[in-house]
């Protein structure tokens, strides 16, 4: 598992290196994603070298801050008309978290990561919005050169894929701790997929000129 963690942290490091080396060429949303990775890198290092209880609190903190970064990312990425969905996602997340905290005041001190589930729901919704917007873009718009396409491919696989692990992980750990340890490798595998796709996104992202001819637009 430690080896996987090193690979994981190395991949985040590569992402950061690619992001900062190509900083000037990146689109504003990709820059926001780069900042999110800075935060993620720092928190992962702290989490690794602290005790279990503090690591749990840091995970909660990470999930909440991650949502704010992702909100900023999609705020910069999506069309202004779709910002209502962003605020709706944020409201749902905040409300769900508040209700959970009211029901269980020790929630943030426990290793129960329901906020990971709420984050997964928001991210799936926002990813869906991005893909909906993407299919309406001009035909000349290259998917391969759009870093956001790769980043969202990672998001659409990682967040729905880890939702159940976040939701039922704590319960599973109580019932069978060994089995939970082996299940964590799924989480690592999905994390590695996510950061591998982010790396492609940082390496390939470039600004694309949108053609003016209305004939070339879908539905025109």
């Amino acid at each position: 598992m430690t080896q996987l963690w090193y690979l994981y942290i190395f991949l985040i490091g590569c992402n950061l290196a690619a992001g900062f080396l190509r900083w000037r060429l990146l689109s504003p949303p990709m820059k926001a994603l780069c900042l999110l990775l800075c935060w993620g890198f720092t928190i992962e290092l702290f989490r690794q070298y602290t005790d279990k209880a503090t690591a749990g609190v840091l995970t909660h903190l990470n999930l909440n801050v991650e949502l704010l970064f992702q909100f900023a990312y999609y705020y910069l990425l999506l069309d202004k008309k779709k910002r209502g969905f962003l605020y709706a996602g944020l409201t749902v997340f905040g409300t769900a978290l508040f209700v959970t905290w009211q029901v269980n005041p020790n929630f943030f001190r426990e290793r129960n990561y329901l906020d990971g589930v709420y984050l997964g729901v928001c991210m799936t919704l926002w990813c869906g919005l991005f893909f909906y917007e993407l299919i309406q873009k001009p035909l000349q718009y290259s998917l391969k050169s759009d870093g956001n396409f790769w980043a969202n491919c990672g998001n659409i696989l990682f967040y729905p894929g880890t939702m159940l692990l976040f939701g039922l992980g704590n319960y599973m750990e109580h019932i069978n701790s060994e089995l939970w340890q082996s299940l964590k490798s799924i989480n690592y595998a999905l994390n590695l997929t996510l950061y591998a796709l982010y790396l492609v996104a940082f390496c390939r992202d470039r600004k694309q000129a949108i053609p003016i001819s209305p004939r070339l637009y879908i539905g025109a």
Binding site: I175, N176, I186
Partner: peptide, 30 residues
């Protein structure tokens, strides 16, 4: 492995697999 743990395991693995499959399908379709 207890029945409870087995149920949870199936839920996690089955659910995650379905969600991952849906994610892959979406990307492929796009």
């Amino acid at each position: 492995m207890s029945q409870q743990a087995s149920d949870i395991l199936i839920t996690i693995l089955g659910g995650s697999a379905i969600l991952l499959f849906l994610g892959f399908t979406l990307i492929f379709l796009i």
